[in-house]
Design a protein around this nucleic acid. Structure first.
Length: 177
DNA sequence: AAAGTGATCATG
DNA sequence: ATGATCACTTTG
């Protein structure tokens, strides 16, 4: 059985945490029971200077969660339909997060949240203590590939090009395009 | 290739 | 109050 990840591990900078989260277990307790899925794909978003990061225009009602302590859940609605789930990371006051793009069996950030019943009621949840949503480390460390982040055409070229997407090598992900 | 969907944020 | 913009998914 895995061990819950705590504040220290989840407060690493997002570009360090994103590859480390590959192979970790995303755990969700609902009325139906406990679901655990292994994380296979992540992306990191790194502060106000990262033009792809939601906090690139500063702190707002929506983005204030990104400035919280590492280990806080950031869940927001995308395209009016999909809840997207991020793990806030880095030090408090600095907006960084890791987007979970894929877990075992579900490739796509909107699909995995639907499968695990992760919605915006979990926005702001402290995953280091939560009974509803947390991360476990059972020691599995997959090798991985890096790639450019997806769906951020609005960012400046510098930040579009950075290899801030991390894909576990044995993940059966659907290539983009 | 393109619609569908609604919160969010800047503008007036 | 209004309108553009989306860290996506599904359908044809």
């Amino acid at each position: 059985m895995g061990k819950r990840m705590g504040r220290k591990a989840l407060s690493r900078p997002a570009d360090v945490l994103a590859p480390e989260l590959l192979g970790k277990l995303l755990c969700r307790k609902t009325d139906q029971g406990i679901l655990k899925f292994r994380i296979m794909e992540t992306e990191c978003y790194m502060g106000e200077e990262d033009t792809a990061c939601h906090a690139s225009k500063g702190k707002t009602e929506r983005t204030k969660i990104l400035y919280e302590k590492g280990g806080t859940a950031y869940v927001y609605l995308c395209y009016g339909i999909h809840a997207l789930f991020n793990v806030v990371s880095g030090r408090e006051g600095h907006p960084e997060a890791v987007l979970i793009r894929g877990v075992e069996g579900y490739n796509g950030p909107g699909k995995l949240t639907r499968a695990m019943e992760i919605d915006r009621t979990l926005n702001g949840e402290d995953m280091t203590v939560s009974k509803r949503l947390w991360l476990e480390d059972d020691g599995y460390r997959p090798s991985y590939l890096t790639a450019k982040r997806v769906g951020i055409d609005y960012a400046t070229e510098e930040y579009r090009e950075i290899l801030w997407r991390f894909i576990a090598e044995d993940a059966r992900y659907k290539p983009v395009r």
